[in-house]
Design a binder for these strands. Sequence first.
DNA 1: GTCTATAGGAAGATAGAC
DNA 2: GTCTATCTTCCTATAGAC
Lengths: 199, 199
Amino acid sequence: MPRMAAKDRREALIAAAIRLMARDGVAKATTRAIAGEAQMPLGVFHYCFASREELLQEVITRLAAESVVAARQAFAGAEDPASMITKSLQVFWQGVELHPEEQLVGYELAHYALRQPGMEPLARRQYAEYLEAIEELLSEAAKRLGTEWTAPVPVLARYVHSVLDGLTMCWIVDRNSEHSREVLRLAGEHLLSFIAEPS
Amino acid sequence: MPRMAAKDRREALIAAAIRLMARDGVAKATTRAIAGEAQMPLGVFHYCFASREELLQEVITRLAAESVVAARQAFAGAEDPASMITKSLQVFWQGVELHPEEQLVGYELAHYALRQPGMEPLARRQYAEYLEAIEELLSEAAKRLGTEWTAPVPVLARYVHSVLDGLTMCWIVDRNSEHSREVLRLAGEHLLSFIAEPS
DNA sequence: GTCTATAGGAAGATAGAC
DNA sequence: GTCTATCTTCCTATAGAC
């Protein structure tokens, strides 16, 4: 008599893995540790997942999707179209300062995927999704403002993503919120300067 | 009769470790693999280093120092003070596209240090050195131009560092050189806009 | 499906002959 | 100092009883 359906076990293991990786890092998330975190016997792991790598792939996909959803929500929440950009950046940054471990896990998983033969496509997709989400948000913003961007949207999206990604990592290391927020403000204003006057 | 002084062994092992990590990643750089790469018996490792961690600490310090030196050289090489910034960014980027593995190792080591209890200070120092180097370069640039920055130098340095760091990681994943160079150009121009008119 | 027990290997580090 | 052989621990994955 199963206490839990196999499908639910999978979910529980994924959740446990994410929790564990956020706390101790991807390297420490062994099959044993994950099963332990989910309070299941080790043997369970391998009839829910074919291998540790399969679980990690699932985690990468989940986390990337979550991040994209969070970004869209932050964006949709803004009323005043003029401050849409600024507000989204602030909401994103609040998330970073509140849950830096999750961001760190994202980096670790990307590197893991890049180093694992055959898993590079997953890392590529992870980044492609982020970039695409930002592109959509930028296009949406221009549309709502009834204007256009004066630089190619894919380039602007890459710019935004790079600043946020680099700034996040920098803050995770030195926790300098004051300077980080200044950079965020500065980059936000720069981005706004690429909005053409409404025709 | 030693074929090599212990001090030289240390250097050889460090070099082998860096080579190996660039090729296969930090996780694959086990004591066995490093000794093998240096064509030494495993036993050698532990009378050159007290532990694997001690070697990694040494590697982190070396790589950070190298990066800073490279940045200064790129900067010093420019003649025309007006294009100093732009040129430095380009030189940096050439390095990234030529040796992306080294950059990736830098990220991996930073994350390793952050996750290893007691090693966070090393990661902090690594980032602090980068930031400080950029601050010095910015100050030097303003001095040569006979002008000032219209924003705090530490903030500008963090901005530059973040863009470069984030953009590098993004390029390592998707190898989109065209868009990356556009972002670099765009960020460079933005940076130049913070130069006050010479008094 | 479920869990215990274990296979089989690789990791960091050390003991001890030379 | 030098190197071989080995200790101990921890890993992923599986075999096999229930």
